[in-house]
Amino acid sequence: MYNFDFVKPSTVEEAVAALQDDEAQPLSGGQTLIPSMKQRLNAPGTLVSLLGIEALKGISSADGVLTIGGVTNHATVAAEAGAYPALAALAAQIGDPAVRNRGTIGGSLANNDPAACYPAAALASGATIVTNSREIAVDDFFQGMFTTDLEEGEIITSVKFPIPEVASYQKFEQPASRFALTGVFVTKYADGVRVAITGASEEGVFRWAEAEEALTANFSADALAALAVPSNAMITDLHGTAEYRAHLCKVMTGRAVAAAH
């Protein structure tokens, strides 16, 4: 790790001001940033910790919307997001206890790792990403692996999840990292079904439109029978071919539908 300066502001305004420095980077739970710094792959001049900002923490539920503060860690979501059980269950399955007690929802969404779990939940829920300067509809937020609509220095302050009628997240784990080899989040709202898939695509998290249409008409795994995810944009690596991942998209979607409650 290279030397760096560290600041820990207590308000969003102070954090935004500190991030005006070109060499500054925001630090949330640090579950990706710190390891990359230890490997000297990342060398910020200043780390601006967001963990001192109380306004960014916590979970609340009102009018059918669950709002989670940007630096709320996974363990807290697992314990306190009972209003949205599938989301709480997802948080409970991220990494290990150490990761869950450090990693945050804002950090995960801002990083947009193509195998992370939270992007699937946000995309499948039609969530709204709230930042220090604006609100971003999730369909505009993810822009390919490790890329989002966030500007430099922009901070996720909270995420608003409309609570679905039923939902489920089904993750097939990559055997080594236990990230999602393919993970599918399915939600059913009054106006339709959304299906978001992580871990599988070269483009990062994506919605499976054909499945959404079929499941909106008939919310049953049988509705997927004639569908297939094309494998051409899927990831091939040590742990599975594109063809295998395309297959898993369908299998895990079916399981999520069957498990949705």
Partner: peptide, 11 residues
């Protein structure tokens, strides 16, 4: 015998 290999062998 990873899941991917077993699935490929069966299919």
């Amino acid at each position: 015998v990873t899941p991917a290999k077993v699935w490929a062998a069966m299919n």
